[in-house]
């Protein structure tokens, strides 16, 4: 089991305490392509933050590859994020004053990889994603799909155990959305990469092999989706 969540609870203490995750238990195997689906307010973003070691949980147990993720210092958390997890965000989250290749090599900078090797690896990943010619361009000079592919290259460059994608197609048109989802799917198939996609769109979830429904902070139905026919709107398309 690559990811083990056992009875995870999380409450936000504001003016009114909000119990967001109510005992989530979930296991994800290495090489799975999973989507976590839920409406806004269902707790899926909180779950993603906990999975990504961006946030703490109040009680329960979270293990990656058997390692307990609990009470980490900022330094340790940063180290785990750097080595274990590749993030893909809805809004790409590229750094605006850095070129594509500089953005891609940034995680390696924090690993202390020498400059030349870093640049070489970043160029390799950009080439694999068909963005070799765009290496020297700034994010503002690229289309949404290109930016998301740069972000994917950045997520992949550290060879992480898990790819966490938070609404990866949220800002893209439907054609580009399909391209990005097919890219993730291909990564999962050819490289046996574990990919977790958080989304509220069933069309996006339909690309994945397993759909975990989350509602009101609890895991609901977990459907296997081997035939990719879960979308009520028909296979092959993403309804926007």
């Amino acid at each position: 089991m690559l990811i083990e969540l056992k009875d995870i609870n999380k409450t936000y203490y504001g003016a009114q305490p909000l119990h967001v995750l109510k005992g989530v238990t979930l296991g994800i195997e290495r090489g799975e392509f999973v989507s976590i689906m839920g409406a806004s307010g269902s707790g899926k973003s909180t779950l993603l933050n906990i999975l990504g070691i961006l946030d703490n949980y109040d009680s329960g147990e979270y293990r990656i590859d058997g390692k307990l993720i609990w009470n980490l210092s900022e330094k340790e958390a940063a180290n785990y994020r750097n080595r274990l997890i590749g993030f893909i965000f809805q809004s790409y989250n590229l750094i605006g004053f850095k070129t594509a290749v500089e953005n891609v090599e940034l995680p390696l900078l924090y690993q202390g990889v020498p400059r030349k090797k870093r640049r070489q690896m970043a160029m390799d990943y950009l080439e694999r994603l068909g963005l070799k010619e765009w290496a020297g361009h700034y994010p503002s000079e690229m289309s949404g799909g290109q930016k998301q592919r740069v972000a994917i290259a950045r997520a992949l460059i550290t060879k992480p155990s898990i790819i966490l994608a938070d609404e990866p197609t949220g800002a893209l048109d439907s054609r580009t959305s399909v391209e990005i989802m097919e890219l993730l799917s291909e990564l999962n198939r050819t490289e046996n990469m574990t990919v977790i996609v958080v989304t509220h769109e069933s069309g996006v979830a339909n690309f994945t092999n397993k759909i975990v429904h989350i509602k009101d902070g609890m895991i609901g139905e977990i459907e296997a989706n081997a035939r990719h026919d879960a979308s009520p709107f028909g296979a092959g398309g993403i309804m926007k």
């Binding site: 900022e74 330094k75 940063a78 750097n82 989250n93 590229l94 750094i95 924090y110």
Partner: peptide
């Protein structure tokens, strides 16, 4: 702030 958030998410330690 946002940029530092990104940097930290992809593994920048506070010291960096």
């Amino acid at each position: 702030t946002h940029e530092f958030g990104i940097r930290k998410a992809i593994g920048a330690k506070p010291g960096a």
